[in-house]
């Protein structure tokens, strides 16, 4: 039963990979579960005709920048939230969570206006900035959870030993929170890599489109180039799948920590 479920969950992907190597003409011609003839046509077309490396580059830049910024700034915010006592801390945490749950569609129009007035439509900053609206709450929320798990006595000991708070953070907390920081970075990257609505709304043409947008807009006027779409799907899925498989345990921990701990 469980095996069946695993097979079921793996099948769509298997089917897509298989199809991406199948000649276009045979895609809908009597499917068989095992490959009969494998070709690289779709991948070749993807990178030569479609310039698919452009959306890949865009996605890497946007998701990478978002992740780096979020983890660096988010770590400091989260540390403050996890350790310092101040008025309204609980309310602030709740607010951060609420912002993270905000329906994206509701902020598309104000963000659009804002970006247009800043001249940032169809630019990298014009994507990174909106991404921060969902990535930052996610990072902070996750990291607060990770920092809380570290005993406060460690940095107290460091401060008694003569370190300033910032130095204690750098020398003691960051090294110990490294697994948590890595998990957070991976999750933020995956969410940013997969984001669609903002990328669709705030880009105008292929030169700044991210991978999901590019794939969704492949559809031709009269016919759907399924072979290329599936090849692109495989390419788009590859980095996140590798990340997930490599850091499986951490991701599970991060996903559940973000939601279950409060």
């Amino acid at each position: 039963m469980l095996a069946l479920l695993v097979l079921g969950s793996a099948f769509p992907l298997y089917w897509a990979i298989l199809a991406s190597f199948t000649p276009e003409a045979r895609l809908f011609g009597g499917p068989s579960l095992l490959p009969s003839e494998l070709v690289l046509d779709h991948y070749r077309a993807l990178f030569t005709q479609r310039n698919f490396w452009i959306p890949i580059r865009n996605s890497l830049i946007v998701a990478g920048t978002t992740t780096a910024f979020c983890v660096a700034v988010g770590a400091l915010c989260a540390y403050a939230l996890a350790r310092l006592q101040f008025r309204g801390k609980f309310a602030l945490l709740g607010f951060i969570l609420a912002v993270g749950m905000f329906p994206q569609i509701s902020v598309v129009s104000p963000l659009y206006m804002l970006l247009r007035s800043l001249g940032l439509i169809n630019t990298y900053p014009g994507l990174v900035l909106p991404y921060l609206t969902f990535a930052m709450p996610l990072t902070v929320w996750l990291l607060v959870g990770f920092f809380r798990q570290l005993p406060a006595e460690l940095e107290e000991a460091a401060m008694v030993d003569g370190a300033s708070r910032l130095r204690a953070f750098g020398e003691v907390i960051v090294p110990l929170a490294l697994p948590g920081l890595a998990t957070t970075a991976i999750l933020t990257f995956v969410y940013s890599w997969n984001e669609f609505l903002f990328a669709l709304s705030f880009t105008l043409g292929p030169e700044r489109q991210t991978v999901p947008v590019a794939i969704a807009l492949f559809r031709g006027m009269y016919q759907v180039p399924w072979g290329q779409i599936l090849a692109a799907a495989v390419v788009a899925t590859l980095p996140v799948t590798l990340l997930v498989l490599a850091f499986q345990r951490r991701i599970v921990q991060g996903l559940t920590a973000g939601a279950v701990k409060g």
């Binding site: 006595e153 000991a157 401060m159 008694v160 030993d161 300033s164 110990l176």
Partner: peptide
């Protein structure tokens, strides 16, 4: 005065050794 400027040493109940 913050702890780092007091020139004191403290031994914690949990020892608070730096695990890394």
């Amino acid at each position: 005065v913050p702890p780092q400027q007091r020139d004191i040493a403290m031994v914690f109940q949990t020892y608070a050794l730096y695990p890394h």
